[in-house]
């Protein structure tokens, strides 16, 4: 399926990836060619076929409800871009 400029703008926003205006035509062309490759699978009749999410089709194992973690804030925040008083800082969140 060929994408147009507005599709690409919408996808970029949905994925929170900033895109420069001048890059949109090239991105649109490349995404369209990828979707063209993907669309070759549309011709196949898959009615009645169960989707497969995991190759081995096993079931979820459960973990005992036990606390195994201790406070590692200092180590984990040492690699954070911006923290203060133990909090991660981001531009103001407006609700």
């Amino acid at each position: 399926m060929a994408l147009d400029r507005s599709d690409v703008e919408q996808l970029a926003h949905l994925a929170r990836i900033g895109i420069q205006d001048e890059d949109i035509p090239a991105t649109t062309a490349k995404l369209s060619s990828i979707m063209g490759l993907i669309d070759t699978m549309q011709a196949v009749d898959t009615s009645g076929v169960e989707p497969l999410a995991h190759p081995l089709e096993t079931t979820q194992r459960l973990r005992a409800d036990v606390v195994t973690e201790s406070n590692q804030r200092e180590a984990l925040q040492a690699i954070a871009p911006a923290t203060e008083q133990g909090l991660y800082l981001v531009p103001r969140v407006i609700e």
Binding site: L3, D7, L11, A12, T27, L31
Partner: peptide
């Protein structure tokens, strides 16, 4: 990476 993220977002939208 950006292309695949956008393709993936599209396929799930």
């Amino acid at each position: 990476v950006k292309r695949r993220i956008m393709v993936g977002a599209y396929a799930l939208s």
